[in-house]
Design a protein around this nucleic acid. Sequence first.
DNA 1: GTCTATAACCTGATAGAC
DNA 2: GTCTATCAGGTTATAGAC
Lengths: 204, 204
Amino acid sequence: MAAKRKTEVDTSTEEKIKQAARKVFSEKGYFGTRTRDIADEAGINLALVNYYFRSKEKLFDLVMQEKVYKLFGTIVPILINPSISFDAKIDIVSDSYIDMLIENPDLPIMVFNEIKHNPNSFGVKMQLGPLFLESSFFKQIKERNSSIDPLQFVLSIIGMLVFPFIARPIFVNMGGMNKEVYIEMMRERKKYIPIWVNAILDAK
Amino acid sequence: MAAKRKTEVDTSTEEKIKQAARKVFSEKGYFGTRTRDIADEAGINLALVNYYFRSKEKLFDLVMQEKVYKLFGTIVPILINPSISFDAKIDIVSDSYIDMLIENPDLPIMVFNEIKHNPNSFGVKMQLGPLFLESSFFKQIKERNSSIDPLQFVLSIIGMLVFPFIARPIFVNMGGMNKEVYIEMMRERKKYIPIWVNAILDAK
DNA sequence: GTCTATAACCTGATAGAC
DNA sequence: GTCTATCAGGTTATAGAC
């Protein structure tokens, strides 16, 4: 895979399979997906899936690694960066991170679900624990409110951000809410997050 | 199934299968579960699963209906009850509801995931929308703070409550956190929730 | 009600022609 | 690289003996 101009779209068979795999694995999960589904979605022959990726599991690991990176890898480096102010971090998660989730609404549920069902499969092996607990983000929280448990606080922020996307099927698939209405609700949500984060931090 | 004294434990084959199904479906999801897993877990013969429940899918629907009821059916009636004060409602979700989640930690991820994968399977057909939007809970929120969007607020409370259980595999399965430590963290969390809920409500 | 045996089908993966 | 054909193993579900 040599250099390609950015304006060109990669339409190679390999890439078509990867695209299809991203979609189908996201929708149906690992066990709910058959390699035939991926081949059909990609519009290619069944045998080619194994020709390019050797096995269903290897292809899944590849996709999963991308998903985990998208969910955590883009935001954690920002949060633990000591040269970004606390307020700036909150602005980023309330704006860019919600935008990313709007673009990838079933990313969180997929990642959490697959981690639960197979915590050792994909070669990610993140150790969020030590990375986070000694991070500048935790220090910044403590500075603002020394009586708060930073981990409990972080769980609440991420919960406020991510949970609406995990609950999305309740609104959209089940409750019959229009997708556009749901997206508008999430856009509207951006303005609440910083206010509520600060309210929590200054509480008591 | 006639009346049984409450002190008696139901050890019938039918009940053993149901118990096993609850456990295995929770752990592995619908597609990740084989009927053999359920038979083994129940300690009974494979054929008996179909004898009692006709099919894997029917058994799953049964379990799923229970799970949905446990997650929503126990709390929604309390929230929409006009004769319970707002503060009392918050106390209940911060205490009893978290206790229930500690007892059933993978209940939320199972329910949200399966609703996403198959929003029409189990005959629940909840319509949370109308039920909620005109509820006394929404009115009580508006009374406290008329400038807040009650739905956004509810998403945040439920997110703060439920998300830590959805993220549990990150701590326990992946990060190697001891289960007892995790439970203690969730117990500790009870005292934060009412404070933070009120902080959010009084913000701005 | 419970068991063994097996039917009927599906799924991941590969061999081999082109 | 791409296709067809097929294998080997696994899965749900049932028939029939006890």
